[in-house]
Nucleic acid binder design. Structure first.
Lengths: 145, 145
DNA sequence: TATTGTTATACTCTATAACTATA
DNA sequence: TATAGTTATAGAGTATAACAATA
């Protein structure tokens, strides 16, 4: 029991705004939109089988990411190839240049985030990052109630 | 050193979306908009001297909260009184009914958040809430660089 | 008939700029 | 002249629905 506390959402919202604002100049400097970076960050781990799945994963509508994918493809940061098994679907794969761009931008973004995290003692910092990861990964399960 | 980690922003964003989605039905059930609740939550602690200050505090434009304040005032949840010292400004104060409504809604919202937080061991849960509070409160200072 | 990607349309939110009343 | 609050307008972002190709 720890009595009253602030809303989780009420704390996260301004944090989110600040982090996004801090990312903006970095993204602009490297010619990426916010959604462009989000897509790169998602596809960087593993290629994704359909654009719809990619869209749902990042919490966007499938129609919304098309312009984003167009741009990324035009810049050679990812490739869309028809799935031979199902010629309706398009496999989205990151390119080597995309991987490099992502790494550069991510490093810079995290450097910015470190300035914030420096406010915390090492143990809390680790607990925070670990806990956030747990919560995010728990979201899909909770959605199934 | 803990090597590579996920972006703070990349973890917070989906969390934020899920929390907001979870709040929506609660707010609707109690006749509050999202911003309406945010305003109540802000003013609940202490009255605020000007609408502009209130807007800035919640990360909104002063013009954006006017409709929100109108609704809240019409429902008797807060009061806008002219500041005698500066008749241009309007003091925003929460009413007793506003306080009750806020308490009810907040309790329900936090009950929902508990379902998520239940995923964490007690120590991490505390560290998370504590750390988020530290970070949010550190934001204004960082903005002054 | 159902699904993938795409395009077109409408709608919601938000930011900006004018206006008034006080200072 | 500058500031608090308000209103009006325009712009960005988003969701919805319709379409062509493939299953």
């Amino acid at each position: 029991m720890d009595g009253r506390r602030r809303d989780l959402a009420a704390m996260i919202a301004p944090l989110q705004r600040a982090l996004v604002a801090a990312e903006q100049p970095v993204l602009r400097a490297h010619g990426l939109s916010m959604w462009g970076y989000v897509v790169l960050d998602t596809v960087e781990g593993q290629p994704v089988r359909t654009q719809a799945a990619l869209a749902e994963f990042i919490g966007a509508d499938k129609s919304r990411i098309i312009g984003v994918l167009d741009e990324l493809e035009n810049e050679g940061l990812l490739e869309r190839t028809r799935d031979p098994a199902d010629r309706r679907a398009r496999l989205v794969t990151i390119t080597e240049e995309g991987r490099r761009r992502h790494a550069t931008v991510q490093a810079e973004i995290q450097r910015g985030e470190e300035r914030l995290l420096a406010q915390l003692p090492a143990a809390d910092r680790q607990a925070l990052l670990r806990s956030l990861a747990v919560l995010v990964d728990a979201l899909p399960k909770l959605g199934q109630d």
